[in-house]
Structures are given as structure tokens and as C-alpha cells.
Design a protein around this nucleic acid. Structure first.
Lengths: 154, 154
DNA sequence: ATAAATGCAAAGGGTTTGCAAAGGC
DNA sequence: GCCTTTGCAAACCCTTTGCATTTAT
């Protein structure tokens, strides 16, 4: 995993910038770039530890910054009080559903959103850079568990 | 302003809960509920000071919590690292445009967004609570100033 | 050898909380 | 008078930064 295609692209990015290719950077990149997505910085740090590697939290943050600058990772803010990061591979214009019970994130894509936001922005004389749409709710799995809890509480 | 209709509703909310009606609470409610919208907690605290009143920042936060619980104020998170609050009066389902230069917030409404998110959630077995759509870009006013800056930088 | 990255701990911004003093009911 | 709020400062969470040490080039 430390030498797969997407990590190679990060390595190339570092070389272009004449930045040292350190083992921490490769470890973090290898894990985050191949993760299923939507990890917090702490999640990444935990992954590093769990795979038997070592990297301080500050280094995780600093490496994530580089991955974002390289365009290989994108930053997400779901209003949870912390940021999440996902590999750019998945990015081509998708939106998110966030489960308010378990924090799970699902993705969806709908071209109408893009078109609508484009039109709205144009009508307001707004130069649109991007948009963020998040649907908050309860995922299927948590709904199955929820009724029992509701009964207990009421 | 301290005794307008919407502040009366807050007063009623406090009474229902048997909570003391303090001058700080009325001041904060009167200012926030009648504000043009999208204020941070610090904005509210500054408003309090600027109108010759006094209330500690902690009290501002605590009172905002009550206003949110009462449903008279809604909380917004535009990913700026802090939260904003707006009177619920404006809320009937609107979305936001956020200027990434000056931080100005504009609102718009589009019923298709609601319908689309409803359908997406249903298709995923997601019980939808709400959604948040923010268009990030540069507002008309900032675009007028930007070209000069661009030239200066390049 | 040089310049940069690392790790740790301290600082930072927004927000919350503990506790003595003040105030509504 | 009892119970809650208030104000202040300390604590808190996530993130960034300063600095001595280690590492890539």
C-alpha cells in the first residue's frame, strides 16, 4: 500500500516541491488515500497507531495539509466541531448524508443540485466557487435500533 | 424592543419552564430576535455592549441555547470555525450563499432542493431531519473590488 | 552539511463549565 | 428565603505553533 499509484502521486508532489519524503508522510498518505473516506485527523492518527506505525498528531495534521494542497485529499466540514478528510478519488461532485446518531456518512450524486446552485448564484451576481449539501438524518441501521431506545425513554 | 411580540414568546417559553426572566435574557433575546440575521455569539455579545447593556459571554451562550431550544432561533454552521445564529422568523426553508471574501451571507429559497433531498433520503432508507445547502463564492460587491487586488498580486 | 520534518508540549480560538456572588420568584 | 442565573476564570476540544532533536537530501 505504501507504493500504490496514489501514494506515488503524493511522492511526486513532494519531489516537485523539493520536500523530504519521510516515512511518516508515506504512512499517513498510504492510509488516508486508501481509506474508505471521511476520516477525522484523530481517526487518521488512530489508523497510524493501529497499523503499528508512529506519527505525532501534529505530523498527521501537517501531512494532511500537504495532501489537501496536493489535491489528493479534500476537506469536509459537517458542522460536528471537527473536520473530516476524504481521498479525492471519490470526489467528482457528490453530496453527503450524515447520520446524527452514529456519525456514519453516505454519499450521493445528483446533477440537479449543481445546476440549481449554478443558476441561483448567477441570478445573485455571485461568483460560485463550490457548494456543500449535507442531509442530516438517521441512517437505516440506527433506525432499526432506535425504537427500542424510544420505548425505554418514554 | 424589549417587549415586542417575539420577545414575549421567549418570555412565555421561560415561564412554561419556570425559568427566571432576567434582564440579561430579555436583552439578548430582544437583540438577537430582531437582528437582521446570521450573528456569531461574539456578534451578539458586542451588540449587547454597544447598546449599553451588560452580559458576560457565558451568559450570551447560555441564553442563545435557550433561544435555540425555544425554537425562536436557529443555529447555522458555515464551516468558519464558529457558529452563527439567526431568528427563526426568517427560516421557512431557505438556503445560504456565503461570500468567502467578506463573510456576507445571502439567502435564497428553492423548493426543488427540499424535494430532491427528500427523495434521496427516502431512496437510502434515511430518515431525513433537515438539510444544509451552502453556496460558497464571491459576492457581487467583493467582485467589484477583487480585480484591482488581482492585478496587484500578479 | 544543510535545510526541513518530527515530536512534544504549550498556545490558540471558540465554547462550556465550576463556583461564589447576585437576583428572580 | 430558596433556587436559578450570573460573571469570571479555568477547563475543554480541535487545531496550530515554537523549539530542540532527528532525518532526508
Amino acid at each position: 500500500m505504501a507504493d500504490d499509484a496514489v501514494v506515488e502521486r503524493f511522492r511526486a508532489f513532494l519531489r516537485e516541491r523539493s520536500l523530504p519524503v519521510t516515512s511518516q508522510r508515506l504512512t499517513i498518505a498510504g492510509l488516508l488515500l486508501n481509506a474508505p473516506g471521511h476520516l477525522s485527523a484523530e481517526d487518521v492518527a488512530a489508523l497510524v497507531r493501529d497499523t503499528g506505525h508512529a506519527a505525532g498528531l501534529a505530523t498527521v495534521y501537517r501531512t494532511i495539509d500537504l495532501l489537501v494542497e496536493s489535491g489528493l485529499v479534500v476537506e469536509r466540514d459537517f458542522g460536528e466541531g471537527f473536520r473530516r478528510f476524504e481521498p479525492a478519488r471519490d470526489v467528482p461532485r457528490h453530496e453527503h448524508l450524515l447520520c446524527s446518531v452514529c456519525g456514519a456518512v453516505e454519499e450521493f450524486r445528483d446533477d440537479r443540485i449543481d445546476e440549481i446552485t449554478r443558476n441561483i448564484a448567477a441570478a445573485r451576481g455571485f461568483s460560485r466557487e463550490r457548494h456543500r449539501l449535507v442531509i442530516h438524518g438517521v441512517c437505516r441501521a440506527c433506525q432499526r435500533k432506535a425504537p427500542a431506545i424510544d420505548r425505554r425513554l418514554s
